[in-house]
Design a protein around this nucleic acid. Structure first.
Lengths: 236, 236
DNA sequence: ACCTGAACACCGTTCAAGT
DNA sequence: ACCTGAACACCGTTCAAGT
């Protein structure tokens, strides 16, 4: 059923698990994992801690529910977009997760934590299904589905996580420092590393400064897609 | 265990930042992130919180130092092993990180958190340099170094993180349940998903049960390596 | 310089009591 | 069934005081 968020009349709305989760996501977005406390929650929802505990078992479950809600929205197929090719399908799913992690920087660490706590939960299958359908569309033989989908998922998680790290890092440094300035800081720090210990890192420091996150994410994704194609080319 | 076990010999050793970090790693290994508290630390080190704060600024810094210590050990080149091929070099570095995350399950989430807090810190360059040297050895042209090394690092982080999730998950379920039984549980859960919503995930549920983590990790790594080779083959 | 330990503010969680 | 809010155990951190 379609659930619509109505931002008016918040205070008169009845307390519900859904509204608690929604508020939790807002608090996480606003101030990171440290921003989600039961006190902040009770204040925003104008209630007591006992009321929240009636709807959710504990903070871990709440974090899990917040993670699931955001992931579900991220991998939900967009109505208008029908991909022209299987590769575009993979890119669409990947960018959906990439954007979600960028929009909710707390998500990367939470995915690692939540997947470890309950991989049989709803988050892992949701993501896996979404990626897997594209793998099937790529023409990968069934015996390789699991390995291929896993490899894609791992690349996407790793890359999106690192990317959100850059976004979050830029925020941590200073509120008014934008991403370009932040990358500039990292690049400069890398340029000043010991030449004997860090020759490679120093050599690419300049590429750090100039790179575009999205472009790089897609370039890496293409690397993985090429590897998949190399294994399963029909012509041989 | 209600009785506190304190190694009396410890007390005679001088307190140092190094010993604090070492003890922090032990606590993290034993009980996860929740196991690292200043109270547990003071008990083990037979001291007061003020003494610890003389050596480390706060808990975040301590977590960062613990992460760095473990990563440094993981990417340190092993004396005996000289890889036979560039690909073997990549595999060696990747497996070093893979094993470290498996041995220290808290590491995956900490890497995500710590890299976001200070990407200009020591952890990111350490890992990047280690992977980058292998990328250079692979013969990748310099203009693609950053993208290629990033893609490899992202895959490794994502895969190793997911893998540690399985290890940690097995521990969470029950102390005496081993990994095979845990994967069996996940597999069964996936088999019971809604056929309309999760056709792909249900189809691969059996591959979840049968897969070997290390094999799958290396198979995915080869996928990425094949993709890299496809872009930069000097001749066929 | 290095350490002690009581004290403080804040956190997640509980529960007898209300509607 | 759903909510209130005081209370509890525990946490990270501080700081006047000691050596």
């Amino acid at each position: 059923m379609a659930t619509r968020t109505r931002r008016s009349q918040r205070r008169t709305e009845a307390l519900s698990r859904e509204r608690i989760v929604e508020t939790a996501v807002e608090l996480l977005d606003a101030a990171g994992e440290g921003g989600l406390t039961f006190r902040a929650l009770t204040e925003r929802l104008a209630t007591g801690p006992g009321a929240i505990y009636w709807h959710v078992a504990n903070k871990n479950e709440l974090l899990g529910a917040a993670t699931d809600a955001v992931v579900a929205a991220a991998v939900a197929p967009r109505p208008a977009a029908t991909p022209h090719s299987p590769r575009d399908g993979v890119r669409a799913v990947a960018l959906g997760l990439f954007d979600a992690i960028e929009e909710h920087p707390w998500l990367a660490a939470q995915l690692a934590t939540q997947l470890s706590r309950s991989p049989a939960g709803s988050v892992a299958p949701r993501i896996f299904e979404s990626i897997g359908r594209q793998v099937r569309a790529l023409g990968v033989p069934e015996g390789s589905w699991f390995t291929t989908a896993s490899a894609l998922m791992h690349y996407i998680f790793g890359a999106a996580g690192q990317n959100s790290a850059n976004t979050a890092g830029a925020r941590t440094l200073a509120p008014d420092v934008n991403r370009a300035e932040f990358l500039d800081t990292v690049s400069s720090a890398w340029e000043q590393l010991d030449p004997d210990d860090y020759p490679f890192t120093r050599a690419v420091a300049n590429q750090v400064r100039e790179h575009d996150d999205r472009e790089q994410f897609l370039a890496g994704l293409d690397l993985v897609l090429n590897g998949i194609a190399a294994l399963h080319t029909p012509s041989g």
